[in-house]
Design a protein around this nucleic acid. Structure first.
Lengths: 164, 164
DNA sequence: AAAATTTATCTTGACGTCAAGATTTATCGA
DNA sequence: TCGATAAATCTTGACGTCAAGATAAATTTT
């Protein structure tokens, strides 16, 4: 009986007309998300990054040489709005982790590239981040992790389809 | 092969030294969270609420008569900081959905209570919200939902334990 | 070519959140 | 009873996010 169970018990008492069965799953999903995010943040902060800046640097890094993408590409990968990306890039450029130069082939656009400093930082941060994910996942066995991943994959495909 | 799989493939290519197995689960978890939140928001917005205000009103409602709690109680249930709660209560009070009166038994504290308007609103909103959760969960069978809930429960218990 | 449309990016304004610190009131120990 | 400590709440300042709208350049139409 965890906190989410107590919430469900209250609803059962106060609104017995409602079938709140799925609410437990949603509730635990939300709480877990918040605990996991804070666990991941520890490592980001240790490298002077936030989840937001890590996200951008990691996207550039894993895109491979020359570690450069347009803001539009970054927006597509990270699924944030253009305003959010502008903000993130302002911060990263100011920190000297990325460069932002006019795209010679398209006057409307820019090219965002990892600086050497950005490259070094994200390589170290990713190494720690992956180790951290392994640590956080330890609460489940390998089989359970695979099972969970399968369920998340199926659910994600279902709701993404119906969303659009 | 979804978007998360593509990210993993990039890491495999660029950083073959890393075992990114858990990253898929974390990635899908995050994307799913964002899709689900936006699906839930639709209903909140239809009632003129945000996830934040719904959260507070629902906590008061399910606490049962007299539908009143202290800010501290609300903070404990919703797991937000005191500053956040003050903000939420300001908005809700201004909208006439809750009242905020000095606690006669403790000069330091207040009592937050649902107004009749707040009570009516949250009862209608919760009904729709629960139906919406059922709809969003349809992508999984009943068995799968139970399985997922079990895994989330186990994982949550594990990471909550290690967090503190 | 000139006009209309589309694309790429940035700006602005409003939210919601948190951390840290301030204020006020209770409570406890000497 | 008085000073110290604890508790409850609010204030302030900094983030990160989004929606909507503004610019500017490329592309498509006419």
């Amino acid at each position: 009986m965890d906190q989410v169970d107590r919430i469900l018990a209250q609803w059962h008492q106060e609104r017995p007309d409602l079938d709140v069965t799925p609410m437990g799953m949603f509730g635990r999903f939300g709480r877990l998300r918040s605990v996991l995010m804070s666990g991941l943040d520890d490592i980001f902060r240790a490298h002077g990054l936030s989840a937001a800046s890590f996200d951008v640097l990691a996207t550039l890094r894993r895109s491979g040489p020359p570690y450069a993408l347009s803001p539009s590409d970054l927006i597509a990968w990270t699924m944030v709005t253009s305003g959010t990306m502008t903000n993130r890039l302002d911060k990263l450029e100011q920190a000297g982790l990325v460069s932002r130069e006019k795209n010679p082939e398209d006057g409307r656009g820019f090219v965002i590239a990892l600086t050497q400093k950005g490259r070094d930082l994200i390589d170290a941060a990713v190494t720690d981040h992956v180790a951290n994910q392994h640590r956080l996942a330890e609460g489940l066995t390998g089989d359970e992790q695979a099972q969970l991943d399968g369920l998340l994959r199926k659910w994600l495909a279902a709701v993404e389809g119906q969303a659009k």
